[in-house]
Nucleic acid binder design. Sequence first.
RNA 1: GACCCGUUAGUCAAGUGGUUAAGACACCAGCCUUUCACGCUGGUAUCGUGGGUUCAAAUCCCGCACGGGUCACCA
Length: 501
Amino acid sequence: MDQKVRVRYAPSPTGFLHIGNAQSALFNYLFARHFNGTMVLRIEDTDTKRNVQTGEDSQRENLHWLGIDWDEGPNKPNPKYAPYRQSERNAQGIYHKYVQELLDKGIAYKDYTTEEELQEMRERQRANKEAPHYDGRWYGKSEEEQKAAEAKGLKPTIRFHFPKDHEYQWDDIARGHVSFNSDNLGGDFIIEKSDGMPTYNFAVVVDDHTMDITHVLRGADHISNTPKQMAIYEALGWEHPVFCHIPLIFNPKTRKKLSKRDKDTLQFINEYKKHGYLPEAIFNFIAFLGWSPKGEREIYSKDELIKVYDPERMSKAPAYFDQKKLDWMNAQYIKQMDIDELADRTMELVKEGETEEAQRLQSIPEDELRELLKKTIHVHQRDVNKLLEVIEYAWSYYTVLDEHFNYDQLIDNEDFTKEDLLAVLNGLKDKLVNGGADLDYSQAIKEVGKETGVKGRNLYFPLNLAFTGSTSAPQIYEIMDIYSRKTDLELLDRMIAAVEA
RNA sequence: GACCCGUUAGUCAAGUGGUUAAGACACCAGCCUUUCACGCUGGUAUCGUGGGUUCAAAUCCCGCACGGGUCACCA
């Protein structure tokens, strides 16, 4: 790159950070960092009807959580390029200035067609099996006709007039050579709405140019917008940036673009956060949606991804969202992270209390909770996919005495005699009663085995059942350590009573 | 309907004319283990289809089928 790279992530603040937005932000981020360029955050809030007050904050918070930061944006303005919200830019007349230029050149014109008329036009075209398009009815109209429309109280939109039979083509980093003919782009399109706001296709060109954006990485759903934007670049005598259209994320079940209505998939980054996915894992996972590095490795830290990121390796085919693979990847991160760090993060989740499960733990005093979580993580780090599961386990251990276990599966099992069961349970009970605070549970169980002559599953199954309600459990001495000595004894007594009954 | 694009195992996904067609997830089997899990080892592909080009095609070209994206005073 001989010229300083500048890229942008330009969301419209209409809701939470969606996985598709995150993907787009992430590739821009990787691109900027890999090439030592500048990452810009621009807010595209020209749709006054759909803007959500909290949308921008949500974008910011969730990007931050993911580990994506930027060098310029509404909160970090560079005076040379500010402001970074299109509504503010519009208020400064930035867009209108160029609209006027196109009007003066006769490339843009006022259109007084009403919404009803447009709809009618589209319906008629559809009925005639034509591609829906604007028919250019207001192109080249006289000033008198415009005045007459004004007199009726009509407010015009400004349309861009396409040249006839003109090829727009570019070399897309991801897609290769792409070309469109001006004749089938849907007719002259609106660049300024009747409320004076620029449309997306116009504002994006003005902003990318005036902000010196060198590379535009965005979702593949923008491919067919690109020729329109190129037409504007051309009309204004500007050079267009390099384009890279990122493959869309598909839902494997519907085989369509991931839709916000697909209930089977978590759509928003904040949902992943509250379920206890680690941002490192999500970052890693999203980087592999539509891109892959050379080689067979799949686990990469953010810094490693920045290093190996190669835009030439962007895929063309859509990326299918595989929830199970994400779970696996998150589990990999959990396995390699140390317990204190995991405990900190789980504490964080509890404090935020965004799920019922997390809220329940808020009743536990902080020091006690931290101990409980550390012990729970120690036991379950290897088998848990997300931190919410740690929270669930912790709660089940905390409230174990409220549960009523069913001991019948061993009592009614001919492989386990009543005598052996009692010998084991009472044997361990003795150790617990007589042992000091530093009693080694693992050692104690082994001794019980030796003293009673009961071993293997006959030794461990009863203990598993007594302490967890199930014959299969992780290392039982670790579970015993999660509970208080008093609870351990209570659980043993309960089973002893059941066996004797 | 028009215009663009895609199609490699159950699911993803490498692969850019000559490979035993990577790897991951899931699944199954074996090993390990008191059990569960983790971990380890092994297992599964005539590369959508029909034609070309070539000594040689998953890779290049054409047709077909299927799938998708886009055709807003949304971004």
